[in-house]
Computed example of a mutant assay.
Amino acid sequence: MSTLQTLDRGLRTLDFVSLQPSGVLVSEIADELGVHRAIAYRIVGTLESHGLVARDEGGRVRLGAAVATLSRRFAPQLMTVGRPVLTELADRTQATSFVSVAEGDECVVVMVEEARGQALRVSYQEGARHPLHRGAPGLAILATRPESPHDSEDVRTARERGYSLTHGQLQAGAIGVSVGLVGIPALEAAGIEASVGVVVLGGLDTERAVRESRAAAVRLSALLAG
């Protein structure tokens, strides 16, 4: 697959900056991209002119407000109603809650909420990607699709149970539970396949996690239908 180098560098810069809450220096961006600082400055300047990044007085680069505007344009109804559902799910399970969507062969995290008072936090952030066939969110999505002779045992098990449960597939010590969102016209019309669930490091009351994740899926379905 051919790519446009300048655009690729700009997108990689956005991804790199998004993972650094305290911001990054242009020199660090240059090192990350493997380019001269002058090129990194031009990339940052272009992104800044579109409001996608901003520089503080110390020269540190952070995401700009335009990124939030763009994010709200992705499945706006889901993004609007989903946040309070995830907050409640996180608090009820004392785990990190999320909504993920399928994008090609990858699973992409589009919303994350952490439980208040959660001691250990998993490195599961909005925008994170992983193979669709690994981890509870992707398996839950695959389980909503028609049966295929190529389905893995994990997918067949998730389809039979109505939820996916994984241990350490994406991060050592992490336990994930996820439920696919099905029969939602608003998502189907947009061609979006999604799942909702929780992930936590260490112990998890899996029965409660399954119950609450299913309830969250039902609530999301009702809100999106209404």
Rank of each mutant, 00 (worst) to 15 (best):
R219Y: 02
L204E: 09
M111S: 09
A194W: 05
L89F: 12
S152K: 09
P21S: 00
R9P: 04
I192E: 06
V17T: 11
G64A: 12
Q20G: 02
S2H: 04
Q94P: 00
D8W: 03
I192D: 05
G183E: 14
S100I: 03
L181I: 01
V210R: 07
G168S: 15
R208N: 10
A216K: 04
E114T: 12
L11S: 06
T93I: 04
S164N: 05
A95R: 13
D56H: 11
P131C: 03
V122W: 13
V179K: 10
L19A: 15
P76H: 10
L52P: 11
F98K: 14
G191I: 10
S71R: 08
D154K: 08
G180Y: 06
A174G: 10
A190S: 07
I43M: 02
A128Q: 01
R159V: 11
R121M: 04
T96F: 06
A119D: 15
V122G: 15
V67A: 03
L63D: 03
P21N: 09
Q77P: 05
R9Y: 14
M1N: 12
T144A: 15
S148A: 06
S18L: 05
S213W: 10
T6S: 04
G10F: 01
V99K: 02
E147I: 03
S221W: 02
L4F: 08
A189D: 09
R134N: 09
D91Q: 14
R145W: 15
